[in-house]
């Protein structure tokens, strides 16, 4: 419940960001630089360029969550297509899964940084880079459940009734294979928000001056002695959001896949 509340709150903040900000998050006011939190018009203080940290944080929520959301969608869709083909059309299984193994053999963050840097800094490229590292996970999960579902007697019934393989896959196998994927996707959302922060922190993610939680922390890093709040506050935002997404994932798993809950509680 706590997880759901925080996720809902953050989503609302991200959607309503345009109305919630008190100042232009990009407006530079050098005479107000390094204002501490709760100082007059700046609720959370200002950064080294005198930009309002509260407004940047709110806009950053929009950027971070949007990227996390799209990574979840793209890796979910691609993973489903790839995993379903590997699990249902067994001829492709070997080659597809070896490719996925190879992608998983790289340290995930290193691969994402390499792809993001090669493609150049933009939100779309961050989504593509992060999706590339999560597709193998989703593909494996879909494949595993397709392998189970395709042996069910209702699938056999559909096949022997002469339904085309593609239709069987789409109408009978896939809908019954989705539960573990949905659970995994909420975790991928969480990982993606974290990973986006890492990419932006290292300078290959969301290009400045657009604020994202990662690049606000990167900005604050050089001024951690005189203005620790620039680093502290966005980090807390990332942690809370990711924590909430993880809790949500756990809750979803308990609902959709009760067997795992018993094991976790044992």
């Amino acid at each position: 419940m706590l997880g759901f509340t925080i996720v809902a709150f953050m989503t609302l903040v991200a959607i309503l960001a345009g109305w919630l900000i008190t100042q232009d998050p990009l407006r530079i006011q050098m005479r107000y630089r390094f204002q501490p939190p709760f100082s007059g018009q700046f609720w959370l203080g200002t950064d080294h360029l005198g930009r309002d940290l509260y407004s940047r944080l709110v806009m950053g929520a929009r950027v971070s969550l949007r990227i996390g959301f799209w990574v979840m969608i793209v890796s979910g869709v691609l993973g489903t297509i790839i995993g379903a083909c590997a699990g249902y059309f067994r001829a492709f299984d070997g080659i597809i899964m070896r490719c996925m193994d190879a992608l998983m053999a790289f340290p995930s963050i290193m691969l994402a940084i390499a792809i993001a840097a090669a493609l150049g800094p933009s939100d779309l490229n961050v989504v593509l880079a992060l999706s590339a590292i999560y597709v193998p996970t989703t593909a494996r999960i879909v494949r595993a459940s397709v392998l189970v579902v395709r042996e069910m007697s209702y699938v056999e019934a559909a096949v022997s009734a002469g339904v085309k393989p593609f239709i069987v896959l789409l109408r009978h196998v896939l809908p019954n294979s989705f539960a573990p994927l949905i659970v995994q996707l909420s975790f991928i959302f969480a990982y993606a928000v974290l990973a986006e922060a890492v990419l932006s922190f290292l300078g290959v993610g969301t290009p400045p001056p657009t604020p994202s939680w990662g690049n606000i922390i990167a900005d604050g890093r050089s001024y951690i002695r005189e203005a620790p709040w620039i680093t502290l506050i966005p980090g807390i935002a990332v942690t809370l959001t990711v924590l909430a997404l993880n809790l949500l994932g756990d809750a979803l798993r308990d609902v959709l896949d009760p067997r795992l809950k018993d094991r976790a509680d044992a």
């Binding site: 969480a190 974290l194 922060a197 890492v198 922190f201 002695r225 980090g235 990332v238 942690t239 990711v242």
Partner: peptide
């Protein structure tokens, strides 16, 4: 265990540097 999957590692590093080194 929950914090371990939720804390950004680079941020934890910065906080620890701030507290224990600086």
């Amino acid at each position: 265990a929950l914090l371990g999957v939720s804390l950004p590692n680079f941020w934890l590093a910065l906080i620890l540097i701030f507290a224990f080194a600086v």
